[in-house]
């Protein structure tokens, strides 16, 4: 069985010495973030690989000022931004994107509740956030995902995105307003 290392179990800068372990440890988080940002499985897989490739090539420049996760997220955020801007004019690709349905995993994360009603409620809630996130600007969506998927705090998000702390707060606040409006609209 494959061992998934927990980030807390690894020492800060020495983490990069075993790069395979770094990949195993953060692959899921990076892929999840990219997938939720782009909603395109192929692009998410490619960018996840690119992210680790870039990280591997520039690992000697990592000074340990931020955590490895923040550093990797910064690379991923830049890759997503570049990809999104290069894809802006490709309408056909954009039309293809909704191939990812986050609500499809509702049954698996319904907190052990197996009743169809409970699964339906979970699906509805996830769907509301998912569609609200789709309508956000790129920056708003990025900070929302980093906060609520990657569980990063404002300072970490600022470090990962290169935004100022105040800018992160503004984008996150607006993103949350939209999400709340969507959730309340669903009820």
């Amino acid at each position: 069985m494959e061992t998934v290392l927990q980030p807390e179990a690894l020492p800060a800068i020495d983490e990069l010495a075993d790069f395979d372990a770094v990949v195993r440890c953060y692959q899921r988080a990076i892929y999840g973030f990219v997938l939720a940002s782009l909603r395109d499985r192929d692009a998410a897989e490619t960018l996840t690989q690119d992210c680790f490739l870039k990280a591997y090539r520039s690992r000697r420049n990592f000074r340990g000022e931020a955590s490895v996760k923040t550093w990797l997220m910064r690379i991923a955020v830049n890759l997503v931004r570049d990809h999104a801007s290069s894809e802006r004019l490709k309408f056909w690709r954009r039309a293809r994107r909704p191939d990812v349905d986050v609500t499809a995993v509702s049954a698996r994360i319904a907190d052990g509740q197996r009743s169809p009603e409970a699964v339906a409620v979970v699906k509805e809630r996830i769907g509301a956030v998912w569609s609200a996130a789709a309508g956000l600007s790129h920056k708003q969506r990025t900070v929302l995902l980093l906060r609520f998927v990657e569980d990063m705090n404002i300072l970490e998000i600022a470090a990962a995105t290169g935004m100022k702390e105040g800018t992160v707060k503004v984008h996150l606040f607006r993103a949350l307003q939209r999400v709340r409006a969507r959730i309340e609209g669903v009820k």
């Binding site: 899921r28 892929y31 949350l176």
Partner: peptide, 26 residues
């Protein structure tokens, strides 16, 4: 809780989707 619960579920769903990269690769 009304806002936090859906966001928590959403985060878990995305992480669940994230695990498919390993499944697909395997």
């Amino acid at each position: 809780g009304k806002v936090a619960a859906p966001l928590r579920l959403f985060g878990a769903a995305v992480m669940e989707l994230g695990s498919e990269v390993r499944t697909r690769k395997r």
